[in-house]
């Protein structure tokens, strides 16, 4: 039900959308900055999860429900798990402190703020349109159109992406295998 409403950004029932937008925007924006300030890697991961979830909500608001689902499944479900794995595999101390030094933190924050401000200025100066000119059709974002586009206009990109995934799979496996070998070699060395 909610989804049906959300699909109609720019319609007369705009207030629901407005609320939802701010809700999701706050979720992702606040989490992102909490992430910046968090010293602990695990927490960072959790904040990232929240940010990504917020972005997924924004996608919902924009009518791209497939994208939102993919965002949740792939990012929140996959990438985040990967990151957690990475943390566990590389940290002897599970709560590794990754707190930045003071000067670095200051520099980073300053630069980030400058960037955000500049972008905001630019966006406002550009005078972007308030809303879309025409109300979209119901099935505008139908998944089948995405499928059709992927297999026609963006076929090459699609195939390239597929190939890249394959390469990544093989490459990652290869890199890890090398590591295992190296570990074994190191182990035998250590024994002797």
């Amino acid at each position: 039900m909610l989804l049906l409403h959300v699909q109609t950004v720019g319609s007369s029932e705009g207030w629901v959308t407005l609320v939802l937008f701010y809700l999701f925007a706050a979720l992702s924006g606040v989490s992102a900055w909490a992430l910046v300030l968090s010293p602990n890697i695990i927490r960072m991961a959790v904040y990232l999860m929240l940010t990504l979830a917020g972005v997924a909500g924004i996608y919902f608001l924009l009518g791209a429900e497939l994208l939102a689902a993919v965002q949740l499944i792939v990012y929140v479900g996959g990438v985040l798990i990967l990151i957690i794995f990475g943390v566990m595999l590389t940290s002897r101390n599970p709560y590794l402190n990754v707190a930045p030094r003071g000067g670095e933190m200051a520099l980073g924050l300053v630069l980030a703020t400058v960037l955000a401000v500049l972008l905001a200025v630019a966006v406002l100066a550009a005078g972007l349109p308030e809303a879309a000119a025409a109300a979209p059709d119901d099935d505008r974002y139908a998944v089948r159109w995405i499928g059709a586009l992927l297999l026609s206009r963006h076929l090459i990109a699609f195939e390239v992406a597929a190939v890249i995934l394959l390469i990544v799979m093989i490459g990652a496996g290869y890199l890890v295998r090398r590591r295992i070998k190296a570990n074994q070699a190191g182990a035998t060395e250590g024994r002797s």
């Binding site: 630069l111 400058v114 960037l115 500049l118 972008l119 200025v121 630019a122 100066a125």
Partner: peptide, 10 residues
């Protein structure tokens, strides 16, 4: 560098 570019463009 990005910032500088951005500033110049703006």
């Amino acid at each position: 560098a990005i910032l500088l570019v951005l500033i110049v463009v703006l």
